[in-house]
Design a protein around this nucleic acid. Structure first.
Lengths: 148, 148
DNA sequence: ACAAGTATGCACCTTTTTGTAAGTGCCCCA
DNA sequence: TGGGGCACTTACAAAAAGGTGCATACTTGT
C-alpha cells in the first residue's frame, strides 16, 4: 500500500515547510480536510454542481424544468440528484409551491451564493484561456486514446 | 431520453435569457463548452488535480516523493496519472534530471499557475465556511448512507 | 379521450474513475 | 546481503458516477 490505509487518519499534511505561500490562503491542520480547497471540493465535486450553482447565480430562481433545459445534456436523474445534495448541503433552496401540476423552483442560499462567487474566477479562467483549453481537447480527442 | 442523445449536438445552451448576469463572467456560445466554467472543469475535474495544482503553487518545484507525501491519501498510481495529464495539458512541467537514483520534479507552467490562482477563492471559501462544511459532513457520514 | 407537460422516484445497467497490491531497475547504507 | 528509498508501471478490482427508461398523479390543451 502506498497511501495511508485507515481513512480515519487524524494526521494532517502540514503544508510545505518551504517558502511560505505566496498568494495561498490555504490553512493547514483543519478538521478532516487537508485545506480549504479540499473542503470545498468535497462539496462541489460532481459533474453538474458547479454548473448548477453558476446558473442559479445568474438568473433569479429557476423552475426545475427551466434549469434542465438550461443545463444542456444533464439528465433528470442527475439534475434532481445533485439538486438534492446541494439542497441538503445548504447551498440551494428548493421551494415547492405544492400546486397541482407540480411547481417547484430552486434558488441559492446565501451560502450557495458565496460559493458561486468563488467559482467566478474559474469561469473567467476558462473564458480567457479558451484557446489553450480547446487545443488540449483537440489533442485528447484527436489522436487516439493514448494521451488520456 | 431526457437529455440530448447525440454527443455531437452542435447546439449551444444560450444562457438564461432572463435577467442578465449580475456578476457572471460566463460567455455564451463557445466552441464546445457551455461556458468558461465548463471548460475549466473539464480540465481540472479529477479528484487530485486541484490539490496538486494548489500544492505546486505554494512551494517551489516539488519532487515526486515530496508531493506524494504532501498530498495525503493519494496513491502512486493516481498521483502519477494525474500529473501526467496535467503535464500533457500544459499545466505542469516535469523535469527529469536523469540521475541514477531517479530524480524528477514538478512545477507549474504559467498556465498552470494562472489556474492555481483561480483556485484560491475556492480555497478561501472552504476555509471561511469550514464550520458549515463540517456540519454537512457530520450529516453525510453521521446518519445513514441515505443522504449521499 | 388522448397526448403532453410538470417534478420527481426507481430499477437496472454501462462507463468512468479510483484504489490496491504487486513489481521494476537502480542505488545507498549498515 | 538484506532493507530501504526513488520514480514509476501494470494488472486487477471496487466503487462511484452517470445514463435509460418506465412510472406516478394530476392538469391542460385539442
Amino acid at each position: 500500500m502506498t497511501a495511508s490505509k485507515t481513512k480515519t487518519d487524524p494526521s494532517v499534511p502540514s503544508p510545505p515547510p518551504q517558502t511560505a505561500s505566496p498568494e495561498g490562503t490555504c490553512t493547514p491542520t483543519l478538521p478532516g480536510f487537508t485545506c480549504g480547497l479540499d473542503a470545498t471540493l468535497r462539496i462541489i465535486a460532481a459533474k453538474w454542481k458547479p454548473l448548477i450553482l453558476y446558473f442559479l447565480a445568474q438568473g433569479g430562481p429557476y423552475r426545475y424544468g427551466e434549469l434542465r433545459r438550461a443545463i444542456r445534456d444533464v439528465s433528470d436523474k442527475m439534475l434532481i440528484q445533485q439538486l438534492k445534495e446541494l439542497e441538503s448541503d445548504g447551498l440551494v433552496k428548493r421551494t415547492d409551491y405544492k400546486e397541482i401540476p407540480p411547481r417547484v423552483d430552486y434558488s441559492l442560499t446565501p451560502l450557495g451564493h458565496s460559493l458561486a462567487e468563488a467559482l467566478v474566477p474559474l469561469c473567467s479562467w476558462g473564458t480567457e484561456h479558451m484557446d489553450e483549453v480547446s487545443r488540449v481537447f483537440a489533442k485528447r480527442e484527436g489522436w487516439g486514446a493514448k494521451g488520456r
